[in-house]
């Protein structure tokens, strides 16, 4: 959109109002938010309720240097990735069943309509009962958080593959696994990617929430536990540092992993939804 203005001669662009790229706009907004936070916290003057932005950054820095925060992050990510991976495998199985058989389709639509509205965190008591306090319970609720939205998105993606494209694929001799992997999966990729994105966000939220409920006896508690214990100790700057870490990891995964995947696949193919 703004490409047109960028290619204008220098004299012309000088007279124009300053046009910033999306990245620069984001940076400006972030800086304004941080400044607002800093000013309000200073005016409030109560670091137990709201530490300043700089204090939070300091806490983030020191907790990172002393190894506490990286260890918590790693503990969280380990559980998260395990649950995410299991969720993806199960979603693939259920979607395959739904695509291949009518019974599978009914199963998927019934299960998703039952379990999708059920917050994963509500399953935590059951998980604790079945798996005890530990990472297995966390993995269980994360799988629940990832599985249903992902399976739903994948199934919608497969169903939306145009009939002409399907016929063109079978015409050149695709059948069975080659039909699925060389035609259906790439054709459904836009939906699959947005399902993965959604699943990741759900898993991340669920994990942080679940970790606040327990983790006490699991010695290697994750980020949620870090936030929870620091609140109990009135280390409010550390609480904010923990929250900031949650946000930063979310942003990093979004921009580095999903935005990159999106750029090299569906956007290049003109399939972005």
């Amino acid at each position: 959109m703004s490409d047109g203005t960028l290619h204008l001669p220098a004299a012309a662009s000088l007279r124009r109002p300053l046009v910033l790229g999306p990245g620069a706009r984001r940076a400006v907004i972030l800086a304004l938010l941080a400044a607002g936070w800093e000013l309000y916290a200073r005016w409030l003057g109560n670091s137990l309720l709201l530490p300043t932005f700089l204090e939070t950054l300091g806490a983030l820095w020191s907790e990172t240097l002393n190894g506490e925060l990286p260890q918590r992050v790693w503990a969280s990510l380990e559980v998260l990735l395990t649950g995410y991976a299991i969720g993806i495998v199960l979603a693939a199985v259920i979607t395959a069943l739904a695509v291949l058989t009518r019974w599978g389709e009914s199963l998927l639509s019934l299960l998703t309509s039952m379990f999708n509205p059920l917050p994963a965190i509500a399953l935590l008591p059951i998980a604790l009962l079945w798996f005890g306090i530990g990472s297995s319970s966390l993995v269980f609720v994360i799988v629940h958080a990832v599985l249903w939205p992902l399976a739903l998105a994948c199934h919608a993606g497969f169903r939306a593959v145009p009939p002409t494209l399907r016929m063109a694929g079978r015409n050149i001799g695709l059948s069975g696994p080659s039909y699925v992997f060389a035609l259906l999966v790439p054709a459904a990729l836009p939906s699959i990617l947005s399902g993965l994105r959604l699943g990741w966000a759900f898993a991340w939220r669920t994990l942080i929430a679940a970790e606040m409920v327990f983790g006490a006896s699991a010695r290697s508690g994750g980020l949620g536990w870090f936030i929870f214990t620091n609140r109990a100790q009135l280390e409010t700057a550390n609480v904010f540092a923990g929250l900031l870490t949650v946000i930063l990891i979310g942003l990093a995964v979004e921009t580095l992993v999903f935005a990159t995947l999106n750029r090299v696949t569906v956007r290049r193919w003109g399939q972005e939804s």
């Binding site: 002409t164 494209l165 016929m167 063109a168 035609l183 790439p186 054709a187 990729l189 193919w269 399939q271």
Partner: peptide, 10 residues
């Protein structure tokens, strides 16, 4: 086919 979406977009 008549339809334009018979090519693999990827």
């Amino acid at each position: 086919f008549q339809e334009f979406d018979q090519l693999l977009p990827w």
